[in-house]
């Protein structure tokens, strides 16, 4: 399958990429790893006039532990993040990075592309919701930082302005006594998750100090389940609290019937995966090493 014809431009710097995008206007799309974009172009869901390839811009793929904050360059691939010291230190990052698609896709796909695509099935936006992340952007009017909350505005629509690109992502390093888990249920490795749930809990003396819960593939955008978080915060993770949190997560979701499953099936998955992610997050918060991989049908 051939994409419709387009002009190709390879940018050497972020400034050059922004200049090209601004000059070309509406018909331009950004190409990074291509693992979301090329599928769209091959199916001719989109027919851009021009592609601006940012894949070779230097120093945009750094993965950096800056003490309190983790910075990840937009071009860092899923596999490089998954094999990094950061994934080793923060298991929820490993869950997400190493659970995306398969080895081949993870070698090309980038975190910036996953976020910029505005696809509710992409994993990184859901993970960034779980870790309260921020998005670093650069456009014709300069650089700015956006909160992940509200970044994906609608299906395939983000808060990026015309000619603006993502240069990096960042999030605060989880505190001591904090643990997280990112749980997915998928048809097979290369498929997007049918449902994804991210949970991050900070526990002090057996009590939940703070909690974050986010859902992927559960509606037209990634969803932060604030009401589910409220069921856990201040409590001690009793069975009743966990059940209420799972119910609240289901209520926050807006799943729809598609080839991956019926809306009702997805609601049941949200409840199950929320409970599972809470359980793993709790054990990890206690210092335990817990393996966690996607589960398949």
């Amino acid at each position: 399958m051939y994409p419709a014809p387009f002009q190709y431009h390879r940018a050497k710097t972020v400034d050059e990429a922004v200049g090209l995008l601004a000059g070309i206007g509406e018909g331009a799309r950004v190409l990074a790893g291509g693992q979301s974009l090329l599928a769209i172009l091959k199916l001719r869901f989109d027919e851009p006039t021009d592609l601006v390839d940012i894949g070779r811009i230097a120093n945009l793929d750094q993965i950096d532990d800056a003490g309190e904050v983790i910075n990840i360059g937009a071009l860092a691939t899923h596999n490089r993040i998954g094999a990094s010291a950061i994934a080793e230190a923060i298991p929820i990052v490993s869950d997400c990075a190493n659970g995306i698609a398969d080895n081949q896709v993870r070698n090309l796909g980038t975190i910036g592309g996953s976020v910029a695509s505005g696809d509710p099935s992409c994993d990184w936006p859901t993970l960034l919701h779980t870790l309260d992340g921020e998005i670093l952007c650069q456009g014709p009017d300069g650089a700015r930082t956006l909160d992940i909350n509200g970044f994906v505005e609608d299906l395939y629509q983000t808060a990026l302005k015309p000619a603006e690109i993502i240069t990096g992502l960042r999030f605060k390093k989880p505190a001591a006594g904090s643990g997280g888990a990112y749980c997915t249920f998928k048809r097979c490795a290369p498929a997007y998750p049918t449902i994804a749930v991210g949970v991050q809990l900070t526990i002090r003396n057996g009590q939940v100090d703070s909690s974050r819960i986010a859902l992927g593939s559960a509606g037209l955008t990634p969803i932060r389940a604030s009401a589910a978080e409220a069921e856990l915060t201040g409590g001690s993770l009793g069975a009743d609290e966990i059940n209420k949190a799972a119910e609240a997560a289901v209520a926050a979701a807006d799943p729809y019937d598609d080839r991956r499953g019926s809306a009702e099936f997805k609601r049941q998955l949200i409840a199950t995966l929320t409970k599972r992610a809470i359980a793993i997050a709790q054990r990890r918060a206690g210092g335990e090493t817990v393996k966690n991989s996607p589960e398949y049908y």
Partner: peptide, 18 residues
């Protein structure tokens, strides 16, 4: 699947110019 700079990738989802 081919190896690109020694890493496996899916060559149907990459442009030759890349």
């Amino acid at each position: 699947t081919v190896l690109l700079n020694d890493l496996p990738i899916k060559s149907c989802t990459m442009l030759a110019v890349q």
